[in-house]
């Protein structure tokens, strides 16, 4: 594909490589479209200052919206698992944390705040932050389901001693996942280094050159990516010495 940037004479060639399946992109956006109403309707019960919206008929309605959205939100990963089990397991495996993620953490301020690519050690198909987002959302999904279903049908069936903890854990899952969601939202729509994420989630592909810089371990493979990175560091140190 070729692109012409505004105010620039030259035409640029972009090489696209696939990143997500159609189902994955659809699932991501349906997840978003249910998570946001779930968070809003849940927060109406949570925040005392939103009390007027929680009262009477309005409250009944927001609780109904919460339930309708919850059914879709809850079933979505199961549908994904039925149709693309290997992709799901592959993604989960890629989300699992490892020691190298500490390197991301150390370099994150320079990378995200100052835009210094070279400070960031090579990352996989998901960088450590994206991995964290994925894991938090998976765990939150499970906690919402495990606590939410008994909150729905369990009054008078399960002991109140247990019910009380369910509401508290439902709240905790909401607090953690909404914070994660806000950070994710900012990085996806407003952070200059992260422009490729939104493209991938919309069209399923990412630019090869972007992947080279930001997801080197995925593009080159872990070994080659490390070699390239070490070489670049040596070069920079050499230049800095003069």
């Amino acid at each position: 594909m070729t692109v012409q940037l505004k105010g620039r004479p030259e035409v640029i060639q972009i090489q696209w490589i696939p990143k997500y399946t159609t189902l994955e992109r659809a699932a991501h956006w349906i997840h978003t479209a249910t998570f946001v109403p779930l968070a809003i309707t849940g927060m109406i019960l949570y925040f005392p200052f939103l009390e007027p919206l929680a009262q009477g008929e309005a409250g009944l309605f927001i609780r109904l919206v919460h339930r309708v959205a919850a059914v879709i939100f809850g079933l979505l990963p199961i549908v994904y698992f039925i149709f693309e089990p290997r992709r799901l397991l592959m993604n989960i495996r890629e989300f699992l944390p490892n020691k190298e993620d500490l390197g991301w953490l150390k370099a994150a301020p320079a990378y995200y705040l100052l835009g210094r690519h070279e400070a960031m050690p090579p990352q996989g198909r998901f960088n450590a932050g994206e991995k964290m987002n994925g894991l938090v959302m998976i765990v939150a999904w499970a906690v919402f389901g495990i606590t939410g279903v008994p909150m729905w049908f369990g009054k008078g069936v399960i002991p109140p001693e247990i019910f009380r903890w369910l509401v508290v854990f439902h709240d905790l899952a909401m607090i953690v996942s909404v914070c994660m969601f806000l950070v994710h939202l900012y990085l996806a729509v407003a952070h200059p280094l992260m422009w490729a994420g939104l493209v991938s989630m919309r069209f399923g592909v990412t630019s090869a050159e972007y992947a080279m810089v930001h997801h080197a371990k995925w593009y080159y493979g872990p070994k080659r990516a490390m070699e390239i990175w070490e070489a670049k560091k040596r070069e920079a140190a050499h230049k800095g010495g003069h």
Partner: peptide
């Protein structure tokens, strides 16, 4: 405590947004 977490997250994001807007140029499409 949850509200403090929301406040901290929003504050951090807004601060980062304003800082980064001046520090990093939109990466050109490559």
């Amino acid at each position: 405590l949850g509200n403090v977490a929301f406040g901290a997250a929003l504050l951090g994001i807004l601060g980062t947004f304003l800082f980064v807007r001046r520090k990093i140029r939109m990466e050109e499409v490559k």
